[in-house]
């Protein structure tokens, strides 16, 4: 069989593009490939990356979650509050995650039982969670934590930053759930054609709700990492994060209309955003310009995706 270049480009385009960018940066900047810089890039991507795994579930099911940035802020501030109030590490984590799960549950139930589109519900939640964060914190950051909680964002395991470990485990679990469990297969199926899923005797509302719960959960996980790392929970963190998270998913090849994609793509998408940010910083490019470049890359990725669709 002859090597089908077109086919390879279309199937692995995003991975190749990622490699290409890395190679170019490695040539332009000697710092890029240093171990410390690499760890730094991955650690930066872990915040978006973890949330993007949850977002992948949502987008695969044909939905969208605009509330992730605000939910992150709310979980973070509650965790920070608990931490400064002397709650133990497990209590902090449990509380933080619970907040995320409850926000996701609210989103999911309103979408399935209230029959309101995900866009509208999560847009509302974006505002509600941000408001609650401001109310709880009185608009001021909550800072200064004890050792155990600091480990989540700042610790190392075998020389690897703990956030990277969390990211790796999250991606792995996300992949296993999507490929090996009913929840995962139904997520794809619902994104493909919900009516067919219903007519197959499946309680699609339950699974759809679960998808938003997962997204809430991963937002809370990112909140714990970020809050711990900054040693502070702020009312304004996480603003506009939903854009980078959705971008990571879309760059990773998950179709915004649902039913097609994977967490591996999402991981590459998250790394890509991080690498580009890092690279442009290393090269000393004006931050205003960086925004433009990022936008171009998102559009380029979706364009690539369309080519792949047409090939089918």
């Amino acid at each position: 069989m002859k090597l089908d270049v077109k086919h390879i480009l279309k199937t692995y385009g995003i991975f190749l593009a990622f490699l290409l960018i890395c190679i170019i940066l490695a040539i332009l900047s000697p710092v890029f490939l240093r171990w410390n810089n690499i760890l730094n890039v991955i650690r930066q991507s872990s915040i978006y990356g973890v949330m993007a795994v949850g977002m992948t579930f949502v987008i695969l099911s044909g939905g969208i979650d605009l509330s992730v940035g605000s939910v992150l802020a709310l979980s973070g501030i509650i965790a920070a509050g608990a931490a400064t109030a002397g709650v133990g590490i497990f209590g902090i984590v449990a509380l933080g995650l619970l907040v995320g799960v409850l926000c996701g549950l609210f989103n999911g139930l309103m979408i399935t039982l209230g029959k309101i589109t995900p866009f509208v519900i999560t847009l509302g939640m974006m505002s509600i969670a941000r408001g609650l964060t401001l109310i709880y914190s009185g608009g001021r950051p909550i800072s200064g934590f004890e050792g155990a909680f600091r480990f989540i964002g700042g610790g190392f395991i075998l020389g690897i930053p703990f956030p990277i470990v969390i990211l790796a485990v999250t991606v792995l679990i996300g992949w296993l759930v999507l490929t090996q469990t009913r929840l995962g297969r139904y997520t794809y199926a619902i994104g493909g054609n919900e009516e067919t899923v219903k007519l197959s005797g499946i309680n699609s509302n339950f699974y759809k709700t679960m998808v938003y719960v997962i997204s809430g959960l991963t937002s809370a996980m990112s909140a714990l990492i970020l809050t711990s790392r900054l040693n502070s929970g702020g009312p304004n963190v996480g603003q506009a994060y939903e854009l980078d998270v959705i971008a990571a998913v879309v760059i990773g090849g998950t179709s915004l209309s649902g039913g097609r994609g994977s967490v591996w793509g999402t991981l590459v998408g998250a790394l890509m955003i991080s690498v580009i940010n890092n690279g442009m910083n290393l090269l000393g490019i004006n931050p205003f310009f960086q925004l433009v470049v990022k936008g171009v890359i998102i559009i380029g990725a979706v364009f690539l995706d369309r080519l792949r669709d047409q090939a089918n």
């Binding site: 297969r185 794809y188 199926a189 493909g192 054609n193 067919t196 899923v197 197959s200 039913g259």
Partner: peptide, 14 residues
């Protein structure tokens, strides 16, 4: 049917 999924995935759905 779910047109974007495989024969296997469709046949296994129920």
């Amino acid at each position: 049917l779910i047109l974007g999924l495989s024969v296997f995935d469709n046949a296994a759905l129920a």
